[in-house]
Design a protein around this nucleic acid. Sequence first.
DNA 1: CAAAACTACGTAGTTAAATACATAAATAAA
DNA 2: TTTATTTATGTATTTAACTACGTAGTTTTG
Lengths: 161, 161
Amino acid sequence: MNIIDESGILAISTRLQRLSEQLRKDGALVYKSYGIDFEPKWFPVIYTLYHKDTLSVVEIANEIGYTHPSTISLLKELEKQKLIRSKKDKIDERKRLIQLTPKGQEMIEEMKPVWEVMKNALTEITNNQNNLLKAIEEAENKILHQSFLQRALQLKSEGEE
Amino acid sequence: MNIIDESGILAISTRLQRLSEQLRKDGALVYKSYGIDFEPKWFPVIYTLYHKDTLSVVEIANEIGYTHPSTISLLKELEKQKLIRSKKDKIDERKRLIQLTPKGQEMIEEMKPVWEVMKNALTEITNNQNNLLKAIEEAENKILHQSFLQRALQLKSEGEE
DNA sequence: CAAAACTACGTAGTTAAATACATAAATAAA
DNA sequence: TTTATTTATGTATTTAACTACGTAGTTTTG
């Protein structure tokens, strides 16, 4: 084992990122193997629109947990692919309402069996003695209650007493 | 809960990344709160050199699991901070051997109590019913044995029978 | 109801990683 | 011992996220 993996919890951020990147990369290849022209990074937007039908830019950003500029650049790509379209909100002229196109909806139908396969493969990988998805949820909840920074500062001040 | 978190395992890559980013960002603030001028992204390199003393660029890259160009850019920053130095290998003239400077070693001593606090805070966050670090290790092992792509392709071909 | 504050969206620039490509030194093979 | 292959390093470019900032509507307040 290398030093970083041995360092344990201190390098957890690096390892989360590495694992995420591996899965994303393979995900792209899975879509390709089905002959589907779809990038994994589009998934959060598409999946959200599939369930919520019509949303503004900021609403999508909040749903997927990205900033709005990041969301805008994803939306631009998806619009280029003609998977989504947008129109101005009649009531609030600042808002741009986003929807799937028929082509987008068709592609979702095509992707459903792929998602099923991915779900099974990911379950194989992540469902061990410690379930990765649940572990993430539990950690997210802990942070929600008190952030890493807050906890560290508290431990620091306790140590200084 | 938002749609993405509800989608479960399919969005696991996004969620790993998000969690990693949160921890990295707070990590930076923890160093700052101790008045230490250190970026979390430098940790893997510094920690590796602390344990291995002298390594070449590619050896460091392998240890920390980054590509060598990424590693080179980290090394450039660390050299600018005067935390590391490098000299040509006498035997193999292609190699650049990297070491901590005395300043780098001093900084490590300064950081040790910070790492201790971080370790405790991270343990609080990640040690739940499902231990996040162990969950990552288990998932990494699964992938090592058979990648996400390989598993997906196999499940696909089984479905086509 | 005019001014102030807030919200939605967009652009520009930054960051931290990657890939692709190039070169030079070392090693292996013909 | 040339030639071919591999290895080590470096540079340029790309990618996918971010922050900072600006503008134009909307809402709240004095």
